[in-house]
């Protein structure tokens, strides 16, 4: 079976993630969209790993997950502080720095 459908799927997921980042205001949702992008990559990695017949891709997928988890920790901390000070999780509210 060709790897193409999997890659196409991953590309679709990646695109959805991108669009999510661009369209959603809530920081948490934006962040989730980023996670979606990472997971789309994971899908691609695993697919290629299978296609190439080595494990590097799968290992990489695990690493990505770990890193994503670490990102969550940091990201949520930052989003929390923002939310606490502004009572809003909208990324558009944080726009004091400009021009």
């Amino acid at each position: 079976m060709s790897a193409t459908p999997f890659i196409v799927l991953s590309a679709i997921l990646f695109t959805i993630g991108c669009l999510g980042v661009l369209t959603r205001r809530n920081a948490i949702v934006v962040f989730m969209s980023v996670e979606l992008m990472l997971n789309a990559s994971n899908l691609a990695l695993v697919t290629f790993s299978r296609a190439n017949g080595n494990l590097e891709g799968q290992i990489a997928a695990f690493f990505v997950m770990v890193v994503a988890a670490a990102e969550v920790v940091v990201g949520l901390a930052i989003i929390m502080t923002i939310f606490r000070t502004r009572r809003s999780a909208s990324v558009d509210d944080a726009s004091l720095l400009k021009y």
Binding site: S10, M37, S41, N42, N52
Partner: peptide, 10 residues
């Protein structure tokens, strides 16, 4: 970046 890694790996 990660997606780039995946593609390059592919």
């Amino acid at each position: 970046f990660v997606y780039g890694i995946a593609l390059t790996y592919g």
